[in-house]
Design a protein around this nucleic acid. Structure first.
Lengths: 213, 213
DNA sequence: CAAGGTGTTCTCCATTCGTTCTCTGTGCGA
DNA sequence: TCGCACAGAGAACGAATGGAGAACACCTTG
């Protein structure tokens, strides 16, 4: 029973975990074949049987569209990868940052799980990006940026900046003598030039996470 | 009793849940037939009986307009995903993908730690992006893309595509009848139009990770 | 009463889909 | 080199599913 999954079995399991929750009905073997790039139901069926035997799939018993993940009774925490338990980090997701508006607070204790490279960074937090003001930097609406809380920055860094205490924006910063230029990365927007004491830096963008549908 | 609903039974149930509350009377079998695109009362009736047997519909007992949802005693709790895994995941970092060149293999067992949203996705891997061919999509040189291993894609998705078995590229795919258009997201590059059998899809881009200095 | 609407049951049919089988190929270790 | 585990293709079979249509019983309405 403690059999190790083969590569293909693990791929099938991963595909099901990914797709099954979003499908209106459990998939057929043919659909799973297409999902995995197979052409033969029969081949896939062998992998299905192995997963059923491992307790990871419900027995199909001839039922059509019977490709259903076993109910969670089986702990079996993701075998497949014999990984060295790389605990990810949980950062607070503080809200949204957009051009021209303050950070909207999200419902409290929203969090996002990020890669382990951010583990232990207690001075980091995450924001959801609204708007396209940084699109030329590849920061799109809906992306999540990882921000290090920090009140100063080097020129060229992308910062969360408050102007006059409001209007949190994501901008590339350029600090010159006697003035600060906040560059949007969107050719249809103008740089903002303000006196240094009107600008508050709230953090430096250190990472970006995006998910595609 | 614990039988799973078939596709059609589930569709009928969904139709009833959507429409019944807005109708002045419970629908007749014929009305439900039209709603589901059926022509035969008899066929629909079989599905109705199955739902009655499952306790999801009130027994009609010959009553006219007797198609009534069973009283809400059956909440049918969306199984959802039983796992709330707060652990990060390790994906293999297979190499680099660029416009016009095959995937360069990296030294073996290079890995990257990603957020827990990718945990258990054994069919996912990561690639480092080289070049600017997708810059208008916000995918920059040096970014890391998370790719789901997959051999087919829907139009509009960003895929890792091989043309003639070589030249792994990151492109937005558009599959038309008899041809495939691979769109770079860079206004200085032209879309690539090829026959479907020359294109091999190696995966679908599902996520993006960037780190700023 | 007749007519039409409606639920019920039945038979017949087509397609989908799970299952099993054989055959092939590949990589790996003894 | 052989054997074995893994992987895939494809054919064939039968069960599950889904549908059409006819026939009938019951009811309401004119």
């Amino acid at each position: 029973m403690a059999e190790r999954l083969t590569r293909r079995q693990a791929e099938l399991l991963g595909w099901l975990r990914e797709h099954a929750p979003r499908l209106p009905h459990p998939p057929t073997l043919d659909e799973a074949c297409r999902g995995l790039g197979l052409r033969s139901r029969g081949s896939l069926h062998k992998h299905v049987q192995a997963l059923v035997a491992a307790g990871l799939l419900e027995p199909m018993n001839g039922r059509q569209r019977g490709l259903v993940l076993a109910a969670g009774r089986r702990p079996e925490p993701t075998p497949a990868t014999p990984d060295a338990r790389p605990t990810g980090a949980v950062l607070p997701l503080l809200g949204r940052v957009a051009a021209g508006r303050p950070i909207e607070a999200l419902e409290d204790d929203a969090t996002i799980e990020v890669g382990a490279e951010w583990a232990g960074r207690v001075d980091h937090y995450a924001l959801t990006v609204r708007g396209d003001s940084m699109i030329d930097e590849g920061i799109h609406d809906g992306d999540i940026v990882v921000v290090q809380h920090c009140s100063s920055a080097r020129n060229g860094q992308i910062v969360v900046a408050l102007v006059d205490g409001v209007s949190a924006t994501l901008k590339r910063i350029e600090q010159q003598y006697g003035r600060v230029v906040l560059h949007p990365a969107n050719s249809s927007l103008q740089p903002l030039v303000v006196e240094p004491d009107r600008v508050t830096i709230r953090g430096i963008v250190k990472g970006l996470i995006r998910r595609y549908g």
